[in-house]
Structure formats: C-alpha cells, structure tokens
Design a binder for these strands. Structure first.
Lengths: 127, 127
DNA sequence: ACCGTAGTACGGCAGCTGTCAAACTACGAG
DNA sequence: CTCGTAGTTTGACAGCTGCCGTACTACGGT
C-alpha cells in the first residue's frame, strides 16, 4: 500500500506537486497557513524577492532555522492551502506566491497581510 | 489554588475581562483567530451588525451551533487575540470588534478579510 | 554505474485545538 | 431570599500541529 512512488511521474525532470485549483482555495486555510510565524516569514521573503507583480516563480533559497523535514512540512501547508506553488527544476524547487489566484479570489488580502507583517516587524524592532 | 473567583471583581455589575493592549496585539494571533470558520462567522456577523464605523459595542446575540462552553472558548480566543472586546452588562455580554485598534495596527487588514469572507460565501452559495 | 546533494515520507512526541458534559458563579426578577 | 437564566470553569477526549530523527527517493555530476 506504499510502493507507488516510483511508478509514474517522470515528466522530463519535473515531478508534479498537488496544488488546489483556484476555486478550491479556502479563506480559512489561507489565514491558517499565514498564522504561523515561520510560514509568514517565508511568504514575506517570497513576496519581497518576487516584487509586487509576480513573474510567476522565483528561485529563492530559504534558510529556515529548522530541519529539512520541518521545512517540507511548512511548504506543504503553504502549497496545500493555495498560498504558494512549487515545481521542481532538477534537484531544486521553484517557489512562487500564487498572487494571481489570491488577488482574484480575495482582492487586497495578501497585500494587507504583507503590509501588516511589515508594520508589526517595524513596530517590534524599534522596541 | 482555584478559590479566588469571588474574592475581587464586583465593580458595580461589570466584571472585567482581560484584553491585550493595542501594542500587544500580534498579527499571527489575529490571523489564527480568524482562521476558524466559527470565529470568522462571529466576526462577520459582528461587523455587519455594527456597521462600518463602529460605535464601540453592540449587543448582538449569537446563536452558534455549539454548546455554551464552546462559545465561551471561541469568544475567549477572539478576545485574547485582540480582535474583539467584551464587557458585561448585567447578565449579558456586550461584544464589539476592536476596529480602531486593528485599523491602526494593520490598516485594511480587517476589511480585506471581511471582504474575502463575503466573496467566498457568495462564491460558494451560487454553487 | 556510483556518489553526493536536495527534498520527501514515516514514525514519534509534546503541546495545542475544538468539542462536549457537568458543576459552578453571577446577576435580575419575583 | 430564592429561582431561573447567562456565562465560566474544569476535565476529558480525539484530532491536529510543529518539531525532530531516520530512512528513503530523485536528480545531477563524475
């Protein structure tokens, strides 16, 4: 019941990750995904490195203070909630915010959250 | 270690609930509070019954499909995260969104979330 | 074909979450 | 004062969360 990893998926060096369709994205799941400090930080960094209008995927590299398995876990939560998309490029992974989908479903939400996160970071750092 | 309920707090019919100061409100906690369907529904109803510019507290009554203890729990999460404020008026409780504080800390966030929730509700209902 | 590197899967664990039922406290009305 | 109603507290319980370590898979280079 667990010997199916090698079976399919060899589309010329691009394993496919399961992403929710735009219509399947749920606000509660998005908010939940963003409510973890680590994940919020990842999303902030992604937004910063991608600029305001996304070219889609960027190849940013994240150095999180957790083990690889924990990273995988957080990225999975972000992906399954519809906040980010991920594709493989060889041995690395390309990450990208799903700005288009999020802005279409929930206009202004992502920007508000990112702005709020920046404000809070500023507020807390000028202690 | 648990016989202190009757001790203090009898300020003329207004037990005081612990609320975070504005400066103590954390974005992550707010997002987490809003990421539960039940709590998001409560906040939506509160926002609707209070109108866009809040007169402070409104006396709305909520009929949640859970027991009283579960309600208490959800209202506590909302209060402790800084999303709502509560005061007693006799036997009932006055609830109110902390619009002022939230808008000051995270401009646009609450409105984006409320708007997103409305859009999602509309989208899901026209199935 | 063989390594090394990058990521995933699995199992485990402490802690938190949403829920309930039952016992309790607080206020208002009679 | 006594009762009923509104809300809180406590304890319980299943399920999820964040975290880790180990074992595994996949790709690229040599």
């Amino acid at each position: 019941m667990s010997r199916m990893t090698t079976v399919a998926a060899h589309t010329t060096g691009s394993r496919a990750l399961a992403h929710p369709e735009r219509a399947e994205i749920r606000l509660e799941a998005v908010l939940h995904a963003l409510s973890d400090p680590m994940r919020l930080a990842v999303v902030r960094e992604m937004a910063a490195s991608q600029g305001p209008d996304s070219p889609g995927l960027s190849c940013s590299h994240f150095d999180l203070p957790v083990t690889k398995s924990t990273s995988t876990h957080h990225f999975r939560v972000l992906r399954e909630s519809g906040v980010i998309e991920q594709v493989y490029r060889g041995t690395a992974k390309l990450n990208g915010l799903r700005r288009g989908d999020l802005d279409a479903l929930f206009p202004g939400l992502l920007d508000s959250v990112l702005d709020a996160a920046t404000r809070q970071a500023d507020r807390l750092s000028e202690h």
